[in-house]
Nucleic acid binder design. Structure first.
Length: 424
RNA sequence: GGAAAGUUGGCAGAGUGGUAAUGCAACGGACUCGAAAUCCGUCGAACCGUUGUUAAAACGGUGCAGGGGUUCAAAUCCCCUACUUUCCUCCA
């Protein structure tokens, strides 16, 4: 959530920036009018409340001295009704403002390219060269089905489309990949490992910005206020919701493996086969709580931490900076990392690393006491490190051999119990 | 699933309808070579608004888990919800 005072004081600049993210000018104008009206009403109602408080003191004194206060009490009854009426008006305006404020996206950072959609994202760099095959590379779902390590049909039977079984060495490979990722983040990159709840309440979904605007993207449990997490970012970031941290503790690094549940409403027909777009997938997530002065440095480090996994797996990838029109709701700046998928002859997203600055911290009330003793919002960051299923897909495709077998990347061999190749 | 007791600053903790105590911690000072201890003082419930500023500050309002109600007036009384602890039941 944005700071209303900042919106009020720098209205034109903020309006311009938010419009690059698809916010309508009219919405913002309406917000300013409501704010104006609200403050006018507050002056009125607060003056009346001051009167009431003063009268209450007098009544209290009279009663204490056993004197008659019936006249004063009667007069206050009238005032009470007026206050109630004005309070109602303020509350209505508050509701309207909250409706708008909770649905406004974060302000893009200065360094974010302005653009309408994904076509205007800017490539930062490419690492590794896509391998040239002496044969026609197969898509990973064909490889997986032929090796009998992925079973999409039974996933569809038992649950529905966009679900699957990993089988035998397929399951082993998935487990090897996420254990490798966790070990790397914990032992090489300094993150604390967590296992989180996989269901969270509405307030947590609000804290990280999924609610109220994106309810249709998630699976909510009927007759409860629990939601299956769409990413471990939600339980990890909300870990410190409504808490005050020590400045000396910052930065705090968390990592967690979790399943992620997404309804994928609106993506019908896209990536219907394979591991790219599922309703349930494993992801190793990184979350940071950073001092505002250092959060953008922390974003660079976190993105490198994600790239380090791909470097070690020797998979070709590129990094792009998302433009204003393609960024997620809570982010001030986002890098996407895209891995090379040979069968599609293209790069596909495998990680997204964002600095949300104080946007989530203001929603979730995560603060620290600074050296002057004042409360200040922390900056929160999150990034995939990495999407596990998509990593398995990339390994199957990039490491496939002409005979249909798949070579295990070197760093994973210890995690595979010494197995170097998956064959039929 | 059932029963009881709880939820008040960073922490501890008083407050049964009439101005949210107090202690610890923090900060400043004295003492000290320095520190600890001690003493003196300050701040602190955390946000909204008005006036105002380089920074400040002053005044007012709200704020006692969250929401609603009663009342001239609610931390306090009533209702609903959440969570915590203990006991019973069940269970991996």
């Amino acid at each position: 959530m944005l700071d209303m005072k900042m919106v009020r004081n720098h209205f034109d600049g903020i309006k311009e920036k938010l419009m690059t993210r698809g916010v309508e000018a009219q919405t913002l104008n309406e917000l300013m009018e409501l704010d104006e009206k609200r403050r006018q009403l507050l002056v009125q109602v607060e003056a009346k409340k001051q009167l009431r408080n003063e009268a209450s003191k007098e009544i209290s004194l009279l009663k204490r001295n056993k004197e008659d206060a019936t006249d004063k009490i009667a007069a206050m009854k009238q005032l009470g009704d007026e206050i109630k009426e004005l309070d109602n008006q303020v509350n209505q305006i508050d509701d309207s403002m909250t409706y708008i404020m909770t649905r406004l996206p974060n302000l893009p950072d200065e360094t974010v390219p302005v653009g309408a959609d994904e076509d205007e994202n800017v490539e930062v760099h490419r690492v590794g060269t896509p391998k040239t095959f002496t044969f026609e590379p197969k898509p990973h779902w064909e490889i997986g089905e032929e090796l009998d390590i992925l079973d999409f049909e039974r996933g569809a039977k038992v649950t529905g489309s966009r679900f699957l079984y990993y089988k035998g060495l397929g399951a082993r490979l998935e487990r090897a990949v996420y254990n490798f990722m966790l070990d790397t983040h914990v032992y090489d990159h300094g993150y604390q490992e967590m296992i989180t709840p996989y269901m969270v309440n509405n307030q947590s979904m609000f804290g990280t910005g999924q609610f109220p605007k994106f309810k249709e993207d998630v699976f909510q449990l009927a007759d409860s206020d629990y939601t299956l997490i769409p990413t471990a970012e939600v339980p990890l970031t909300n870990f410190y919701r409504d808490e005050i941290l020590d400045e000396q503790e910052l930065p705090i690094y968390f990592t967690a493996l979790s399943p992620s549940f997404r309804s994928e409403a609106g993506s019908a027909g896209r990536d219907t086969r394979g591991l790219i777009r599922l309703h349930q997938f494993n992801k190793v997530e990184m979350v940071k709580f950073a001092h505002p002065d250092h959060s953008f440095d922390e974003l660079e480090k976190m993105t490198q931490n994600a790239e380090d996994i791909l470097d070690k797996l020797n998979l070709p990838y590129r990094r792009i900076t998302l433009c204003t029109g393609d960024m997620g709701f809570s982010a001030a700046k986002t890098y996407d990392i895209e891995v090379w998928i040979p069968a599609q002859d293209t790069y596909r997203e495998i990680s997204s690393c964002s600095n949300c600055v104080d946007f989530q911290a203001r929603r979730a009330k995560i603060r620290f006491r600074n050296q002057e003793g004042k409360l200040q919002y922390v900056h929160t960051l999150n990034g995939s490190g990495l999407a596990v299923g998509r990593t398995v897909a990339a390994i199957l495709e990039n490491y496939q051999n002409e005979d249909g077998s798949v070579t295990i990347p070197k760093v994973l061999v210890p995690y595979m119990g010494g197995i170097t190749k998956i064959t039929k």
